[in-house]
Design a protein around this nucleic acid. Structure first.
Length: 480
RNA sequence: GGUCCCUUAGUGGAACUGGUUAACACGUCUCCCUCUCAAGGAGAAGAAUAGGAGUUCGAGCCUCCUAGGGAUCACCA
């Protein structure tokens, strides 16, 4: 069963996948799959100055990692719509620009940067708040054109905006939105290098690729009337638009790539040990709320539950604390095997695991499974257990100076050495025995052992640490 | 500045076509558990729904005005 719903995510390979992009992709994906439609990835690579190598590949990879798999993409083209990279579709845009030119809806413009700047400043000086293209090239004589050509100027193509026309559209997120064309100047559809601008290419592609819905960030809201004018000139039906709220930082500003205190890129979260399910779940809740009170959703569940009516129209703040909480929730859900696979690379950062069995690694990593928020956290937590450094804190020194400490350590090591098997229960029994033998209990019993073994006042339960260290290593450290 | 969008506790946000004490979650705080840190359990504090006016028996929900915030105004996407 499949519908004719077609939606797309259209990244530009000017960088790597960031939170906003992932969210955009996710919601488009959810919408398409909720209605049994197709999800397409089209690469908008017309900004040849800013494209970065590997950008496309890494974005597609990160998306795939999240589970967002396209039905069509540059790597999985449908011949009916291919190609899927705009730079491979240049002839198509040229053709459609020519149609507009022929119909008189567009015209060549020979103005150069300085002239445009000059005109803009002149308008500003006259008190015009939003300067527009002045229409200088709208009525050029043949002589003028000849002159420009002789000067070697390459023209761009501008669209002629209709006058005094109200552009109204029904936004899935915001309801009725309207703009007046008088507020929009004649804008460039084809740059002088023959490459289309975003607002033009996007219309041609969305139409040719038969997109039915477009979910994108609010920053595109003011682009929409420009695009609708093109649809109208061609006599095409525009897709249904939905402009999602922007994501803001803790200062209420749009999340920008320059925000240093918030990680922006998917790869960074991946490296820090965030789980894909947690990230999907977290991003899902950024600007969308489920009808049910449950806020945990797998991607599959989200597809089922997704309802565009519940997209929020006010900005949502990216809250790293909530992300951590969601992630820790998912970590706790992992099976032993999943947890091991997930945590192994982080354990490997502090411990040579080449001659360790899976079981040993898991046992060690399980010490912290309940408390870590993301994988990287285990590195610092594990360090004192693997290679302890004596604690210099005043409180620690006091514990070590207790009159009972020496005896505690000594008899603990003695009794431990008689054990057949080391596990939580047997170690607990050792503590009990030392306690009844010496009459020392609580802090003054446990702390000396803890400090001697890990050099820290804090950490997982003592019995678990000892179970992991094993008899030999424990005694070794206690008697050193 | 023009245009457009938004405004419910620190944060995300719920509240059916207007109908009683404005949900829930994160965070914060307290207590319990406990050798410690976490985790977990129990509980608490925190919002006159930006302000004002109107419509109505009744408004967070409808209308208008004001204020604040944001987005956007490129041969970037």
């Amino acid at each position: 069963m499949s519908s004719n719903i077609r939606v797309r995510y259209a990244p530009s390979p000017t960088g790597f996948l960031h939170i906003g992009g992932a969210r955009s992709a996710l919601f488009n994906y959810l919408y398409s799959k909720h209605f049994d439609g197709q999800f397409i990835i089209r690469v908008e690579d017309t900004d040849i100055e800013r494209n970065v190598v590997g950008g496309e590949e890494s974005q597609l990879n990160d998306l795939a990692w999240l589970g967002i798999i396209p039905d069509e993409s540059p790597l999985k083209p449908n011949s009916k719509y291919a190609p899927y990279r705009q730079m491979e579709r240049l002839d198509i845009y040229q053709k459609y620009a020519q149609v507009l030119l022929d119909k008189g809806y567009a015209y060549y413009c020979y103005c150069n940067e300085e002239e445009l700047e000059e005109s803009r400043n002149a308008q500003l000086e006259r008190g015009i708040a939003a300067p527009q293209y002045d229409g200088h090239c709208l009525h050029l004589t043949d002589e003028q054109i000849e002159q420009y050509k002789k000067e070697g100027r390459k023209p761009c193509i501008r669209i002629r905006m209709p006058k005094n026309q109200q552009i109204v559209f029904d936004d899935l997120v915001r309801g009725k939105v309207s703009f007046n064309t008088n507020d929009i100047g004649d804008w460039v559809i084809m740059k002088s290098n023959g490459i289309p601008t975003y607002n033009f290419a996007v219309v041609v592609d969305d139409h040719l690729m038969e997109m039915t819905h477009v979910f994108r960030g609010e920053e595109h809201l003011s682009n929409t009337p420009k695009q609708i004018v093109i649809y109208n000139y061609f006599g095409w039906t525009p897709p249904t638009f939905g402009h999602m709220t922007i994501i803001i930082n803790e200062n209420g500003k749009k999340l920008s790539k320059r925000d240093n205190n918030i990680l922006q890129f998917m790869s960074q979260y991946r490296e820090l040990g965030y789980l894909k399910d947690a990230i999907v779940n977290f991003i899902l809740l950024l600007g969308w709320t489920p009808k049910e009170e449950n806020e945990f959703y797998t991607l599959e569940e989200a597809v089922k539950a997704f309802d565009p009516d519940r997209l929020s129209s006010s900005p949502s703040m990216f809250d790293p604390a909530k992300l951590m909480w969601v992630n820790s929730h998912y970590i706790k859900q992992l099976s032993d095997k999943e947890y091991l696979d997930f945590i192994r690379p982080f354990v490997a950062k502090v411990l040579d695991i080449s001659n360790k069995s899976d079981d040993e690694i898991l046992k060690m990593a399980n010490l912290f499974k309940e408390q870590i928020h993301y994988g990287q956290e285990i590195v610092d937590l594990l360090t004192p257990i693997i290679s302890p450094v004596p604690c210099e804190e005043e409180e620690a020194k006091e514990v070590m100076a207790l009159p009972t400490t020496k005896d505690v350590l000594k008899s603990f090591a003695e009794i431990l050495s008689t054990l057949e098997e080391i596990n939580a229960d047997s170690v607990k029994a050792v503590f009990k025995e030392v306690q009844s033998k010496l009459g020392v209990k609580g802090k003054s019993l446990y702390m000396p052992v803890r400090l001697k073994l890990t050099g820290k006042m804090h950490g997982p339960e003592m019995v678990n640490i000892i179970s992991v260290l094993g008899k030999e290593e424990t005694i070794n450290r206690l008697t050193k």
